[in-house]
Amino acid sequence: MSHTFANGFNAGRAFIYATLVFFALLYISPLYIILTTSFKDIEEIRSGNLLALPDEPTLYAWIKAWGSACTGSDCNGLAPFFWNSIRIVIPAVLISTIIGALNGYVLAQWRFRGSDMLFGALLFGCFIPFQVILLPMSILLGKMGLANTISGLVMVHVIYGIAFTTLFFRNYYVAIPSDLTKAAKLDGAGFFSIFTNVFLPMSTPIFVVTIIWQFTQIWNDFLFGVVYSGSGTQPITVALNNLVNTSVGGKEYNVDMAAAVIAALPTLLVYVVAGKYFVKGLTAGAVKG
């Protein structure tokens, strides 16, 4: 350990960095292969090197994956399913986040007899495996007339998400001194005006965390999507699966790869845009008065 370099680095440190770089490359290599493959044509994939950059980059695979690839018997690409996912995710994220915020606000600041028990019971919802509720939920959706509909999927995701969103908001709001609520009560504010005037304005970090979490969960969901959707209401994850499993002629790896990236793009985008809040929100619990 005494091999100190002139610039302050030593051998141990160099080893650490080398290891980090190695694993970073290892982790990013699948993404690299997916991206390069998606810009190659099928000839080059068959003949060329897996790791090589495309000789003649082409958008053919992307255009096909988006607009004309076959998913089962339809050949309209991923586009309709992308919009299905959007139509599921946006209401499901917003509704579950708002309910979670209100739940958390009540459980943290308006305690009542048994509120801690209720919170415990809600937490339990985080640990229920998806598979357990598949059958009862499908019966319920059928009875409600929501089977195979977008609204049905939204409802399932909202119900499943409430446990998590409540947990996030409750733990955030529990760190806020109850004197604030008391002061606002004395100032004449009611339940909702305290929420909107005092609590909402300081909730940006936790909203970002919850929205990222819920967006990722719901966008990436496959199981609920494949079970509860009809032919016209499938989310993009289900369509991607169908696209990859449908082969007319030979396997078009470049189209599969482009489709995979299209399906993953929105979650990536959400992380890039709001990622710094994510870390901030998870670590910074307390709001100092």
């Binding site: 001194p177 004197d179 604030l180 008391k182 002061a183 606002a184 009560k185 004395l186 100032d187 004449g188 504010a189 005037n197 005092v198 300081m202 709001v287 100092k288 008065g289």
Partner: peptide, 17 residues
């Protein structure tokens, strides 16, 4: 509380942050 015509100063001040 709001109908009692009182005002309170808290130990923690409880200012709206």
């Amino acid at each position: 509380p709001k109908n009692r015509d009182i005002a309170m100063v808290f130990q923690s001040y409880a200012l709206y942050p």
